[in-house]
Amino acid sequence: MNNKTVIITGSNSGIGFEAAKHFAQLGSHVVLAVRNEAKGEEAKHEILTNYPNAQVYVYYIDLAKLETVDPFVNRIQEKFSAIDVLINNAGVMMPPHTVTDDGFELQFASNHLGHFALTGRLLPLLEKGEASRIVTLTSIAYRYGTIHFDNLNGISGYSSSKFYSQSKLANLLFAKELDDRLKTHGYTTISVAAHPGLSSTNLFKLGKTETRWFAKPLLKLFSQPPSMGALPMIMAATDDSLQGGELIGPDGAGGRKGNPTIEEPKTDVYHSATMRKLWTVSEDLTNTHFANDNETVTRSATR
């Protein structure tokens, strides 16, 4: 990974930060793509304290706001001629029902739609990278998810857990459908999904200011630290044996913790009609259109 360019969304804390530290110490150019630049600078400072020669950059993007995608991509294009790894890691977990300025339910917007748009815009630079790949973070919660196409914004009924599961299922289906399309249309970039199992990160605040007192003992018992939770995404980003389309997760019981391995997804999760519909809906909602062959991808952020 020396001199490779790695972009990690949501990398100022949690497993994203752990992955950023890993790639920084290997000599990669690491972009911390964050919605809070002050916290991003703090994360950068901590990395440089441990690895003074690291190449770390802090760029602003809020995946819940489509208007921030193009300015972020423009900065990347000005700085880098190629991208080797894009890790779609940022996300929110079980907040109160919130509709974004773009009219989307917050979890679906932050966890899926924003990354869909970002990936489409960065694909030309990824194609210029060496053995480039896109890693999209899902969760074991995908196993309980359903895509509610008739109620994506939650206006007709909302459950924070169900809509979180929906967003994580969308992440998994996007990663697989993306890889299928990349192969079909002659791209060299591959797409891989990963999940951290149960990792003790700030996502478990569940919309609160801190993790609830009753959840902390359970997290210690059933979860693993962020340093372990980051390993599946690191494997997904670096393992030369991966061909694209795989799901990487912990090897322990239920995929909750352990060392990273290729995981067999839930039976029949890759439903082709659902995957195609999700892709079409995501294109329409974000005005993102992936090229049908290895050409420059164009996108308009105007809605």
Rank of each mutant, 00 (worst) to 15 (best):
T5M: 00
D101F: 03
L206G: 01
P196Q: 07
S199A: 15
S81P: 00
R299W: 11
S199G: 04
G255C: 13
M228N: 11
S272E: 10
L152R: 10
G14L: 09
G129P: 14
H115N: 02
G129E: 13
L218P: 02
V269R: 04
D102V: 01
G252H: 01
L231K: 15
V34P: 07
Y57L: 05
T288P: 08
S11P: 12
Y270Q: 02
A141T: 09
E18N: 00
N171M: 01
T138L: 02
A236E: 03
L285S: 13
E177D: 06
L198A: 05
V6R: 08
S11I: 12
S191I: 00
L173M: 13
D293H: 13
G16S: 11
L123T: 07
T238F: 01
Y57S: 11
T119N: 03
K4L: 06
L178H: 12
T298I: 12
L137E: 04
S191C: 03
E283I: 01
P232C: 00
M235V: 11
Q25N: 13
E78G: 14
G10T: 11
H271S: 01
L26K: 15
V69H: 05
A131G: 13
R133T: 01
A131D: 15
Q77K: 15
D268M: 04
H45F: 03
K183R: 10
L118M: 11
L122K: 12
L172H: 05
M275I: 01
V92L: 12
G103Y: 14
F149D: 08
N151T: 09
I7H: 07
L66G: 14
S110P: 03
V56W: 13
G14M: 07
L106M: 15
F222D: 10
Q25H: 10
I234Q: 11
T201C: 04
L63F: 11
G254M: 02
R143I: 01
L172V: 05
Y60I: 08
Y144H: 14
F23L: 02
R121N: 14
A170E: 10
S81D: 14
T274W: 00
V92E: 06
L118H: 07
K21D: 04
V99K: 13
I76C: 10
I140C: 05
L63H: 09
G10Y: 08
D293T: 14
D180L: 13
L86K: 05
A215Y: 15
E283M: 04
G145E: 07
L173G: 06
V192D: 04
E177T: 06
S160W: 05
L221H: 02
L172R: 06
P265H: 03
I140D: 12
R276H: 12
